[in-house]
Amino acid sequence: MGRIQHYERPQKLDEALRILAERKGKACVLAGGTSLALRLPPGVDTLVDISRIGLTGLEDRGDSLAIRACTTVAQLAAMPQSRQLYGGLLARAALCVASTPLRNQITVGGNLVQVMPWSDLPGVMLALDGQIVIQGPSPRIVPLRDFYAAHPRNSLSAGDLVTEVRIPKPVGRVQSSFVKVGKTAFDYAGLTVTVVAWLSGNEVRKCSVALGAVRPLPVRIPQAEEEIVGRIPTRDDMIRAAARAAGVLEPSLDFRYSKDYRRQLIKVWVKRCLHEALA
């Protein structure tokens, strides 16, 4: 404590953006604060509290659903849309994040931007083809696929503020599954697997397989997806897809698990998640 000199509490988005622009590089956005409370980025002397600028809740954006950045994970878990859309994927994943008090603190935007290797929501949003909405000097909408091509801390500039994540509304029949592997229920993920399948009849039109906690950032596994898309997948297809998922990635170092074991986990859980999503 003691390094922070200023605490700004803007009431409007514009005001927040202005402060961020003015105190370039020295100001840090504070939302849920669970990461910042433990570690402040170097060089920061100002906290900009964005919890009161109306960035909470869901909004219908026509063909997509916008989750505002300061929506807490607990709020996301409790929303009817989270339980209904995509087979309840958002609610299910949100309830796997950390613990009850932390779900009340961690925000969706924070989880996506402050992404740690084991963060739970980034993989889910990536599987859903989500997009990040950024306000600031150059307002833009970035597909998560691009957003996670490198760590967001490198692509976000000092004046940028992530205001929402947009999820396309499901078209047709969509089924999903999600799993988080940890030593205990409240643990940093050793692996998360998200599978989303868009179906027409029994045929898979489109499929997302996203893995978290394998690499520093969440990843989609097109090699696994292509084993599934355009057919009515058999058990063998799923096993092949899972094997490809396990083979294509070199898991990054994690002192809790060996790489071999994490490959095995990928193989098992991708298979099981595909099976569950396509059941």
Binding site: K183, T184, A185, F186, D187, Y188, R256
Partner: peptide, 11 residues
């Protein structure tokens, strides 16, 4: 306690 896990109520 984030990496040294002890059982919680959910376990």
């Amino acid at each position: 306690l984030n990496y040294y896990k002890i059982f919680g109520a959910a376990d």
